[in-house]
Simulated assay, not measured.
Amino acid sequence: MIIDAHQHFWHYFPERDTWMTDEVLQKDYLPADLAPVLAANGVDGCVAVQADQSERETQFLLQLANENDFIKGVVGWVDLKSPRVAERLEYFSQFPLLKGFRHIVQGEPDKEFLLRNDFCRGIANLQQFKFTYDILIYPHQLPAAVAFAKKFPDQPFVLDHLAKPDFETGELKGWEQHIRALAELPNVWCKLSGMVTEADHQNWQQDDFTPFLDVALEAFGAGRLMFGSDWPVCLIAADYPPMKKIVTDYIARLSASEQAQIMGGSAAAFYQL
């Protein structure tokens, strides 16, 4: 089974969605738009990930998942800094399709936001409800992410978009050091997703990503890597087929079982799909 471990749905609201500066994104993207794309590309299901930081967003994605069988799981949002976080997690634990949560840490000015006491108190509550957590950061926030993941050795974490390295310049050094440190922690997984949007949108080549994929594969192994499209955000730089081809071409040299892990097995295991 092939699983797209990272995509989004939204009703576009200009006042709310100010980060959507590209015209391609300034429209509604809903299951009816994605279903034929997945079918055409041989993808059996997906994980819908939050794009807005509200409980309303979580409920919206759960409703879509309940109405569309191909949405196998939801990564929502809850205020992890709230004193009432345990109460809210208990409430959300009634929804079997809700697999975990994410906060848009890349948008936080504090590069050590992940280590805030109030945020960590919230993270400490996730495990008892069997929720995962998606780490969305930029490379300069990787050192904090390593320290963060070490604080919660039994909490399942997955790094979104390889922490968005600089594919345009190909600069590996600082990023690689911290990726390898993160991969040493067995509770941390990684998504091969969101790559084309961090490259030259008009002129990227598949080879631009190879050095970074080499590091990720060597560090995490196939068992902790998962394919994700980041649809529809990826449409800024690539349609679904060439975006997916970056990963499938790269892993073609691996064994059939390793390819199956990256293209679906790892996501199914991590999110308990």
Rank of each mutant, 00 (worst) to 15 (best):
A51D: 03
A51M: 12
A51G: 14
A51H: 12
D52R: 15
D52E: 12
D52G: 10
D52A: 13
Q53R: 09
Q53H: 10
Q53M: 15
S54N: 09
S54R: 07
S54W: 04
R56M: 14
R56W: 06
R56Y: 12
R56I: 12
E57P: 06
T58D: 03
T58F: 02
Q59A: 12
Q59S: 10
F60E: 12
F60Q: 13
L62Y: 07
L62P: 02
Q63H: 14
Q63S: 15
Q63R: 15
L64P: 11
A65Y: 07
A65G: 07
N66E: 15
N66A: 13
N66D: 15
E67C: 02
E67H: 12
N68R: 08
D69Y: 03
D69A: 14
F70P: 10
F70V: 04
F70C: 08
I71E: 05
I71D: 06
K72N: 01
G73F: 00
V74Q: 02
V74H: 01
V74N: 07
V75A: 08
G76N: 03
G76T: 08
W77F: 13
D79S: 11
D79V: 06
L80A: 05
L80P: 01
L80C: 03
L80D: 11
L80T: 02
K81V: 06
K81S: 14
S82I: 07
S82E: 13
S82R: 11
S82F: 11
P83I: 04
P83C: 00
R84S: 13
R84P: 03
A86S: 12
A86C: 07
A86G: 14
A86H: 09
E87K: 14
E87H: 10
E87C: 03
R88L: 03
R88C: 00
R88V: 11
R88A: 13
L89C: 08
L89I: 09
L89R: 02
L89P: 01
L89V: 13
L89E: 00
E90I: 04
Y91T: 07
Y91L: 09
Y91E: 13
Y91M: 08
S93D: 01
Q94C: 06
Q94T: 12
F95G: 07
P96G: 05
L97R: 13
L97C: 03
L97V: 02
L98K: 00
L98A: 04
K99L: 02
G100C: 01
G100Q: 04
G100M: 04
G100S: 07
G100A: 02
F101Y: 07
F101V: 11
F101A: 11
F101N: 04
F101S: 11
F101R: 05
R102P: 05
R102A: 08
R102I: 00
R102Q: 05
H103Q: 11
H103F: 03
I104H: 09
V105M: 05
G107Y: 03
G107D: 07
G107A: 08
E108D: 10
E108W: 00
E108S: 03
P109K: 07
P109E: 08
D110N: 14
K111L: 06
E112W: 05
E112G: 08
E112P: 00
